[in-house]
Design a protein around this nucleic acid. Structure first.
Lengths: 210, 210
DNA sequence: GGGTTAAGTTAGCACTTACTAACTTATTTA
DNA sequence: TAAATAAGTTAGTAAGTGCTAACTTAACCC
């Protein structure tokens, strides 16, 4: 085994992206500077520019990697045979768990980078969120068809309520300095939320049966 | 009328704070620099340090002013004689309207200033949010006592759901480049949300009767 | 009106930011 | 093994950042 003094381009590139996500999570997205990146990786700062022409390109790759990871988490969530409502819960739980493990995400969504400097990045995340909304809305529609949720329920509106639950909770979690378990609190509130959607007013409110 | 070339300390101070909120709204909180402030006001940059010893002090005053304005908006919302549920709607509508008029707020809650550099500011906003939660929770409790909401409803959880609705929606609104009417969309989703809390499953879902 | 106060000025400092130029050298390949 | 490629280096730049020092002068008070 030869001690490699240099990494290949693809290796270094993915190392840079992973490190960037780490820094954004630990120190906040605005502390993600080329210098911080270089220090953490152990190379000189200009070396990064061998792999990414500008800082925006780093952000773009970070966004794409996050999207990829998020979709991976979502895919592993729902199991065949489960009711749509159960799949919904799994999806939300997976997304909350993912945010908990990548706490940079809520902050990135409000970073200067995204809002002021990188319009295409804003669009990217808006699209990502729209995709999540579509998934949730589809599951809700299925559960309506199945008779589990009220027939008059608007699946789009209901999906937005669940999305805001995730995002609003993530916001409060960040503001509380991450002082509670995001996934636990989220699934608890989701139970309460879903009672709104049920076909009949439940007698034992928190639990759902199918 | 003499053309005043200098403003008094108190005048200038409040002008600086108001301008700061404006810049944070238009350009984002991280673009709030002493230079931008000075340019917009029309004085030299060091002049601001006559009124605020550090930038953190500007932020502190901004936070206090926002809190003050928010409480003013909340106070004007609920009218005597209205049901608690109606007061709740008014409160939420007022808060959404306030955010719509001061779009910096969601971004400020995730700014580097607040999360990385100014712990006391983070606590201040966390406290502000806790206060809003208490108000909502109180109104929900009243409505439960009155029989409008389910008796088994946890007022704290329900209040959190409404808070996350506000915050999550504000997040989506920001991410969509403010492309929809925040107050309108919020009150619409709140109607749906409140059906979850009602004593009996409604036959005409969106409307609430008392 | 003269003196005091404080709101203003210009010049500059120490530091950080993204990024470039020019050069070196480890790794791959013909 | 020699040439080509590309991952690395050091040194430096222009543009910003918050903040200070030293000075000026408009506004207020007796």
């Amino acid at each position: 085994m030869t001690t490699r003094k240099r990494k290949s381009g693809v290796e270094r590139k993915s190392e840079i992206v992973d490190t960037a996500i780490g820094i954004a999570s630990e120190l906040g997205p605005d502390r993600l500077t080329m210098q911080h990146l270089a220090d953490k990786i152990g190379i000189s700062q200009p070396a990064i520019f061998r792999h990414f022409p500008t800082k925006s390109d780093v952000w773009q790759s970070v966004a794409e990697r996050i999207a990829q990871l998020l979709q991976g988490a979502a895919k592993g969530a729902g199991r065949a045979g489960q009711s749509p409502a159960q799949q919904l819960k799994s999806q939300v739980a997976a997304q909350l768990g993912f945010i908990q493990n990548n706490p940079a995400i809520p902050a990135i969504l409000f970073s200067r980078e995204l809002h002021a400097e990188n319009e295409s990045l804003r669009r990217f995340f808006a699209g990502l969120m729209a995709g999540r909304h579509r998934t949730l809305s589809g599951l809700i529609q299925q559960e309506i068809t199945r008779g589990g949720f009220r027939a008059d329920l608007d699946p789009d509106d209901a999906a937005y309520l669940i999305l805001t639950l995730i995002q609003g909770l993530a916001m409060r979690w960040s503001l509380s300095a991450r002082s509670f378990d995001l996934q636990l609190e989220g699934t608890r509130l989701l139970e309460l939320q879903l009672t709104a959607f049920q076909n009949f007013s439940p007698k034992h409110p928190p639990g759902m049966r199918h």
